[in-house]
Design a binder for these strands. Structure first.
Length: 271
DNA sequence: AATCGCGCCTGACGGC
DNA sequence: TGCCGTCAGGCGCGAT
């Protein structure tokens, strides 16, 4: 599923195709995403030029002249540029027809994603304004994380996956970052020292940056990209490896549920 | 205020 | 071979 690095890669890949390009029409084949796609989206967007494309957490923000599209890829969504004559395939739910015979195409098998419209600054939108700090910002550091952990007894993994605290950390990167930081995922959040928080923050930043670089390697043929998310090219030490040997110590990778989510960890490496 | 659990949805996969 | 149950997962929301 797309996590922050994949969304960043999508934005960077789309930007040169979209900037200063006008939308001609919007075709909605399946409006039933997480929330209904606005039925009048085509009326709202037709003739408008795309002014900017940005990311906030895992949300893609496409700035138009009179407002902005707020797009989330959910777990299985993708945004791609295809030829204007390209026939829609299964799960191609929305097409934004653009100038120069191009289509911005939204595909989402599981339909956990969303496509919303706002007339206002998207950063003020209810879905966006409550999102926590960007993990790659300098303000995200050990002191910040420890301050936000005070009084919280939830597992530290739950804390870093809380989008109100830090944006865009999903299960895969949370799991991998905790392994890299050598921190047991079920530690009470408030029990972490500033130093431990800093180690964890550094691990999160390093993993995200690596993943963005890996995603960037496919940017040049983005238009023909098969949409494989960037973390496929990243080494996963624990995620999805329950029952296998730890790659660092030969201990056995454990698996345990935290809420509804599976957490993998090495009991030897992560104290 | 913090936390928990639900629901949205499809596809992959294992068991019979 | 087909059918069915289970799991995966982001994230808002209502309940505790």
């Amino acid at each position: 599923m797309p996590e922050l690095p994949e969304v960043e890669t999508v934005c960077r890949g789309l930007e040169p195709h979209l900037l200063e390009t006008a939308i001609q029409t919007v075709i909605i084949r399946q409006p039933a995403l997480r929330w209904p796609v606005p039925a009048n989206l085509s009326d709202l967007l037709t003739g408008q030029s795309i002014k900017a494309i940005n990311r906030r957490g895992k949300y893609v923000l496409i700035q138009l002249q009179t407002g902005a599209l707020i797009i989330h890829l959910g777990m299985s969504g993708s945004l791609r540029i295809v030829d204007g004559q390209s026939a829609p395939a299964r799960h191609d739910h929305v097409d934004f027809h653009l100038e120069q015979n191009k289509i911005l195409r939204y595909n989402d098998p599981r339909r956990f994603g969303s496509i919303l419209w706002t007339h206002e600054n998207p950063l003020y939108h209810p879905l966006i304004k409550t999102i926590g700090i960007e993990p790659l910002n300098a303000e995200f550091n050990g002191a910040y994380l420890q301050a936000r952990a005070q009084g919280r007894k939830v597992p530290v993994k739950t804390l870093i996956m809380n989008g109100q605290i830090v944006a865009g950390i999903g299960n895969i990167y949370a799991t991998e970052a905790l392994f890299q930081a050598r921190i047991y995922p079920f530690r009470e959040a408030q029990s972490l020292s500033v130093g431990e928080c800093q180690v964890l923050v550094d691990a999160i930043k390093a993993i995200l940056e690596q993943a963005i670089v890996a995603g960037g390697t496919t940017l040049k043929d983005f238009v023909n990209s098969d949409g494989k998310p960037g973390y496929f090219s990243q080494k996963l030490y624990v995620y999805g490896r329950a029952g296998l040997a730890c790659l660092l110590c030969d201990g056995l990778i454990q698996s345990k549920k935290s809420g509804q989510r599976t957490t993998a960890f090495c009991l030897v490496c992560q104290q």
